[in-house]
Amino acid sequence: MPTVVIASPKGGAGKSTTAVLLGTELAHAGANVVMLDCDPNQSLTLWADRGPLPDRISVLSSVSESDIVKTIKRHDTDGQIVIVDLEGVASRLVSRAISQADLVITPMRATTLDATIGVRALQLISEEEEALDRKIPYAVVFTMTKAIKSKQHTGIAGSLAEQGVDLINPPLMERASFSALFEFGGDLHTMPAQGNMEGAIENAAQFAQAVYQRLAGEMG
């Protein structure tokens, strides 16, 4: 089963939120999901400790540089999807995790700073593809977006698309319920209502479906 690595050297880009939304929505749709928390801030572990874990999800904490490759190998088996949440720095742990990915997702706020730093993850993927002589599929998802796109958002999206970067549609919007996952734990389906829940669930599900299509090879 595929390994999805959530990577960006930029802190605060929405990696852990993306990982939790993806993991919980894929599990909700019927997949077994193993989530690896490789961030020293342990955001995934904090989420997991907040409430009962949804069905079909397990979380492994404190995965380090020295054991990331063998931990992914152990869980990269039939019947489950591995999601790796990384720390927001440029580290060896990040490069080793990427080397084991079937898909790398780089969450990015639609700002010039996020795009500039986030692009370093894409450069690393390109270097690793060359070093390992293996194609490593990757995609960018914009996070914390607003209902009305800013000029900056449109410009950055256009620039990435011109460079052939795969942009996941829909982006993950800024929603109270997404950040509240780290307050209540669980998933969007079990959480007490926060703002427009229907819109949030639809956004997260469509995002997870777009990722699933990439993993299933439906993107051509």
Binding site: A90, S91, R92, V94, S95, R96, R120, L124, E130, A131
Partner: peptide, 9 residues
């Protein structure tokens, strides 16, 4: 490959 781009231990 990572070290060349600053992805170090």
């Amino acid at each position: 490959a990572g070290e060349e781009l600053g992805f170090v231990a």
